[in-house]
Amino acid sequence: MYKFVMVAAVATVLAGQAMAAECTPITEKQVEGLFDRWNTSLATLDPDKVVENYAPDAVLLPTLSNKPRLTQEERRAYFVDFLKKKPQGKIDTRTIKIGCDKVIDTGTYTFTLADGTKVPARFTFSYKFEHGKWLITSHHSSAIPETHS
């Protein structure tokens, strides 16, 4: 019996290590492409295309709303209004952290709106590889506060 327990324990540890070693590979350039995919979906002006980038349980803390968006319907409602401004984002600075099937892309970006207004903001996108693709699991965007001397 002890041999069986020992063999089962070793097999469990090895299986756990094998599972941990099977992370979906991604490069920094590919992470940059995830933002590009999201930004391109904004250009379609179709809120459904934008929402496709988000995991079903994602959290969106948007720039132009105080309300956290916790469902696809809430995220869609936000983008219906936001897309009326025809936003296009441009990354100004970023730091990328890559983990096992998880990525964080954080930094600053500037949105240019249809009327020419520029909105500088801070961002954090976290992604997880699920259902065969990288999806946004959280997205926080906030306007850059006034600078103080």
Rank of each mutant, 00 (worst) to 15 (best):
M6N: 04
N66I: 15
L64S: 10
R75Y: 07
K97I: 14
G107L: 02
K3C: 13
T63A: 08
E28A: 14
A77H: 10
V59W: 14
S141W: 08
F129C: 04
G107Y: 00
G99W: 03
D105A: 01
T93C: 03
K84G: 09
P25E: 14
D81C: 13
Y78H: 07
T40G: 05
R76T: 09
D57I: 13
N39P: 04
V31H: 01
C100W: 07
I26M: 07
F123Q: 05
E74V: 05
R122Q: 03
T108V: 06
F82Y: 12
V51R: 02
R122V: 08
D115V: 11
R76C: 04
F35W: 06
T106A: 15
K128Q: 11
V51K: 01
P87D: 02
T63Y: 02
L60R: 04
L64D: 13
S65C: 11
P56V: 03
K29M: 15
P68C: 08
K49C: 05
D92G: 09
Q17H: 02
T112Q: 00
V103G: 01
A11G: 03
H139Q: 11
Q30K: 12
K3M: 15
G89I: 06
K97F: 12
A20E: 13
E146H: 00
S149G: 08
Q88F: 09
A55T: 03
N66Y: 09
D46V: 10
V51L: 10
R37L: 14
A18P: 03
M1L: 14
A77S: 11
F35N: 00
E32L: 11
V13M: 12
I136T: 13
Q17E: 12
V10I: 13
H131C: 06
K97L: 12
S41N: 13
R37T: 11
N66G: 07
T12K: 04
T147Q: 11
A20N: 10
L135D: 05
F129N: 01
E130T: 10
V7K: 10
E74W: 00
M1E: 13
P68M: 11
T124M: 11
I144K: 00
A121V: 06
G132F: 08
T40R: 03
D92C: 03
T137H: 02
E22W: 07
Y54G: 07
T24P: 00
N66T: 14
E22F: 11
K128C: 10
K102W: 12
Y109F: 09
V50I: 14
V7C: 07
A18C: 12
D105G: 06
I144S: 00
P87L: 06
V5W: 15
S138H: 05
D81N: 14
G16P: 10
V13H: 08
Y54T: 09
A77K: 06
T108E: 09
T12P: 00
Y127P: 02
V103K: 00
K90H: 05
K133W: 04
E130D: 10
N39T: 07
E74I: 08
I91A: 02
E130S: 09
Q72E: 07
A114F: 11
A21I: 05
T147C: 04
T44D: 03
K97D: 15
T137N: 04
T40Y: 07
